[in-house]
Amino acid sequence: MSAAPSYGDAVTIAPIGSLRGRLKARGIDRGLLLAVPAMVFVVLLFVYPFLYGLMLSFQPQHGDAFASYRQFFSDGYLRATIWNTLRLALPVAVVNVAGAMAVAYPLRKARRGRQALSTAFIVPITFGTVLVSDGMLTYLGPNGWLNQVLQDIGLIHSPLVLIHNYWGVFISLLITGFPFAFLLSLSHLTGIDPAFERAAAALGASPWQRFRRVILPLWAPGIGITFCLLFMLAFAVFPSAELVGNPSSTTHVLSIAAYFEAYERYDYSMACAITIVAALVELLIVAVVLTWRARAYHGASTVGKG
């Protein structure tokens, strides 16, 4: 985000050496006040609640400051929420990103196909997990269309159990996440100058070599970001874990545990401790991916000139 030299700033003439002049030279003047309302909003509505939650987590109803955290990690049922969440979020993110790459790659030159698919995919994203869960309850239920079709063509003999368990949540995240992954990875892919692929071909690289040696390294940063976003999306899973999952055991995820502590047991300290743990686990994984991305990446994916 480079700042363009702005000719638009009000030219305030201040004596050289005055405080205002010196601040102006460093880029500080009244113009910056324009950003203040947004900053105030973020501080009041995000930073303050966040710190408030952090503080609450260290003020348990009983015991010392770390009691909530200690209880979280010593209680097997609560501790398992980390694993339950990751067990959903990581595979979903991997499957979605890999699938999206496979679908997007052949489409990098097909403009019309790209447009049609992008539009088709934006629909399930807009519907969101609640609506998708509602549809899944009927469609994937024991008497739903899918089980009927599979039974009629003789693929299975008894209905598959696809809802109210791990797979129900997995599928709901797949449905809402895949379009996301597809659109994001496709946009990164089409951002790579096609000249690189042509140059590689002219230098004798086969289609596979072009993918492996040129496109993939240039695509990787975008894929890294896509993976992070997909992971974050799946990590925050809440409504579908409740509606199409098994929220008391296999899909007892962090969000559900936090909600339960806050609104059923009124233990805000524990609820906030869980959300802090959730944020830390999520940011840790994101940080790992981004570090890898920064290491693997040199240069830009577009030609500098022309």
Binding site: A195, A199, L203, H298, T302
Partner: peptide
């Protein structure tokens, strides 16, 4: 296909691979 013709090509915008060093760019072919 292009890659089987054994022609060298210099592009208008150079199309140097940004993720490879100069040596690796030259070594690519």
């Amino acid at each position: 296909p292009t890659e089987r013709r054994d022609f060298g090509m210099v592009f208008q915008n150079y199309a140097l691979f940004p993720h490879l060093t100069v040596a690796r760019n030259v070594a690519f072919g």
